[in-house]
């Protein structure tokens, strides 16, 4: 079953989040690294106050694929860890939940850095 409405929501919400970041980059000279940090912390915050699950229900990948989702997963993991095993869970939960993404990014970066070389930006 293909849910067109869901896909439209994913597209527009995902696009909207990216264009907010783009406005910030253009208007404020904030570097992209800082934007990412802001969005991750925002994701953690939204999950912490319990809003993020509603966003996920509404737009699924539209909010989880942007780096907000990484923040959400960290906070979700920390809260789950706290529920299950108390204080130690606060420390282990976040990274456990996001370990897949970080490990994948590191592994693929390692692999492709061995295979390829960095090139000069092209004439555009």
């Amino acid at each position: 079953m293909f849910d067109l409405l869901l896909y439209l929501k994913v597209f527009f919400v995902g696009g909207f989040i990216c264009s907010i970041a783009q406005v910030l980059i253009i208007k404020t000279k904030i570097t992209s690294a800082r934007i990412l940090v802001m969005f991750v912390v925002l994701g953690v915050f939204l999950e912490g106050v319990g809003v993020f699950d509603y966003l996920v229900q509404f737009a699924e990948s539209g909010v989880t694929i942007p780096i907000l989702g990484f923040g959400k997963a960290l906070a979700e993991g920390a809260i789950l860890g706290a529920q299950e095993s108390g204080l130690i869970g606060v420390f282990t939960g976040g990274l456990t939940k996001t370990a897949g993404g970080i490990a994948a990014a590191v592994a693929f970066a390692y692999l492709f850095a061995i295979i390829f070389d960095a090139r000069t930006k092209k004439n555009m």
Partner: peptide
Amino acid sequence: MPLELGNQRP
């Protein structure tokens, strides 16, 4: 920044 980083130049 690293050469292959997909950022925009101001």
